[in-house]
Amino acid sequence: MKKIFVLCSLICFLSSSVFAQNDAINRYFEAQLENEIFSSVYVSPKLIEIVSEIDIQALDEGLDDGELKRNEAAIIEEVLKQLKGLMVLRTEVEPMKHYKEILGEFAKQNADFDLLLSVRDEGNHVKIWTETTPDNTIQELLLLVGGEDEMIMLSLTGNIDLKKISKLAGNIDIDGIEYLENLDKTEQ
């Protein structure tokens, strides 16, 4: 009986530690929503589900000049069907201070996140982490950029295909997403 009790407690503790990692980022994001110096974007899984039902090719040709090629529209539709959520946090006030703060928050937890990319480019520090399931599906991608001008934190959740995300990144105008454009080369 004691063994079962200890085993159950261990399982609860471990699962709460795993969830706590995502919670740490979510908590930080929610805490900064009230902070005037941050800009934020939150897109819920429900909205992504709705948007994934839209005919992207028709949207592009109907509302714009039809810049998307057919295969690009198909890729975007595929990616949207797999995405579960998007969060972006950005500030131009003391960006390196907030960059280090988030790094600190992230490092505190014993994470299942793996560092995919760490680049220093023209004064910008770029880090990308991914959380994968046992079958190697990426279920969360976290991008952190810190530089002299701005700090950006971007979190994508869902079943993420790096190659397709990097193609999508070129067609979306969201702060920080341009850093994902070369991800497919990194995976190789």
Binding site: S39, K46, I50
Partner: peptide
């Protein structure tokens, strides 16, 4: 209702809430 989108930028805060029933908005 659930929050579909929330965007905060430069003193502007926009929230879109929706009640979606299956495929019906």
């Amino acid at each position: 209702m659930e929050q579909l989108v929330a965007i905060k930028d430069d003193g502007n805060y926009t929230v879109i809430m929706g009640k979606i029933n299956g495929k019906k908005i």
